[in-house]
Design a protein around this nucleic acid. Structure first.
Lengths: 247, 247
DNA sequence: GAAAATATGATAGTTTTGCTATCATATTTA
DNA sequence: TAAATATGATAGCAAAACTATCATATTTTC
């Protein structure tokens, strides 16, 4: 379990002052993650965050223009981190199928990290991305923000996964669409299992992340290799258990 | 082109006063859709809406508790409307494949309506659902709101589609997950094509909705009928055109 | 058709959010 | 040691997110 001191590179236009470089900045990152998790984006604001870390609103505004951009920053951090993990874990693999399997396990975040970054709680950040991530790009400023490169990390991540898909099937017609759909599905089904279980077969009980991984594998395999049935081992990931849940 | 005067039934807990029943209520619905489309959820508020329709903030609060619940109301309206369309258009069909094809065309909203409701601009509402729909359930109150039944329409819709999937393949292990994923994918890929085109193969040019329909069909067919290739006609919906778009 | 109930508008006010400005002081860097 | 930079303290403002009250329509009911 190494301590990663390498700074992830995040688009500089996302902040006024680089939060990874100062004590206050790292405090803002650490506690914004915790507070966003507690309150949700709508309940969260810079005043509460300042209070929590014993600083002032004005100081926080010196780092981030507003909470939406802080969210975009955190999302970028997550996307960069996921791409880094995928690269790390697929680098030495040559078999395309195994690469795809590993990528999917990174997407659902089951590929347990052997690295930690002191000021980012990755599990809590994962929850935030699951619950609030889509809000990073669902707003009226998307086009302007996209022009500034705020979503380059997401696109690079998507592209990385799309390439692995193409390595498996060079004539697959929708590599990017499948990649982005796998990314979105991972978040959605984790969220649905917890809050709107009627929208998915993934169950809160047991290892939810493992189930999501199986779901994504099932989809990816059937789509990318139309005649085959699954990532070597399983044929039908989930027994069609009659659900007893009412919600 | 009939005028539908039937009131869609929306969970009564979503409003204080039924907006479909009064002139002001219908004005709120009509103009909230237009204004949400213009400003996005974050830029939208009841003051601006009141100004737009020549009423007052207080009057609008007599109908809806806040803008988030108004959004949930509109989303419910959309879900109910989609389910109604699917039922209408599949009712007389007995072939499961054809049912699924029709359902998908309803999901992406290409199944052009032959009905209109005077105070709802369905095309604009569709844009709102695409851009803001996910915010209806991504908030800290989901669990409480779910308990109140605010998402019953979405679940019923998802269930409807899941049943059509099962009619096509009774042993398909993820009918609900596929149904909700198709619903989410429809919105996402329309949005991506417009704002983040690197995340999808769907192109802004040409008939975007038709392309999304082909994408969803491709996915659904490969998943539900693993040996077959598409909804009768096409084998490979999109030629792998090298993309010249930079975003 | 009068009385009662209900809906709207007008106005005002409260609290919270989102954000900017200024100044003093601490800390770092040159 | 001087200069630059970062933070904290404080203040303030405009807008958002409501709530309350009262007068006047309008509708409903008896």
């Amino acid at each position: 379990m190494a301590i990663l001191s390498v700074e992830l590179s995040i688009n500089e236009k996302l902040y006024h002052r680089n939060p990874q470089r100062t004590e206050l900045g790292r405090n803002i990152l650490r506690h914004s993650i915790l507070l966003l998790d507690e309150l949700g984006l709508e309940g969260f604001n810079f005043r509460k965050l300042a209070e929590r870390i014993g600083s002032t609103e004005a100081s926080i505004y010196r780092y981030f223009e507003n909470k939406q951009l802080l969210l975009v920053y955190l999302a970028n951090w997550y996307w960069e981190w996921m791409r880094f993990r995928i690269d790390m874990k697929t680098m030495h693999i040559s078999a395309p199928k195994e690469k795809l399997r590993v990528a999917i396990s990174c997407i659902v975040d089951t590929a347990k990290r052997n690295t930690h970054i002191e000021f980012i709680d990755e599990d809590v950040l994962h929850r935030i991305v699951v619950a609030e991530g889509a809000k990073a790009y669902h707003n009226k400023e998307v086009d302007a923000q996209n022009k500034e490169g705020f979503f380059l990390s997401y696109k690079a991540l998507c592209n990385r996964i799309a390439n692995i898909i193409l390595e498996n099937n060079p004539s697959f017609p929708y590599p990017r669409a499948l990649a982005s759909s796998l990314l979105e599905m991972a978040n959605n089904h984790i969220y649905f299992a917890e809050h709107l279980p009627r929208l998915t077969e993934v169950r809160e009980a047991g290892d939810k992340l493992k189930q999501v991984e199986e779901l994504l594998s099932y989809f990816a395999w059937r789509l990318v290799f139309p005649q085959v049935n699954g990532p070597e081992q399983e044929l039908s990931p989930l027994p069609g258990s009659e659900d007893g849940q009412p919600n």
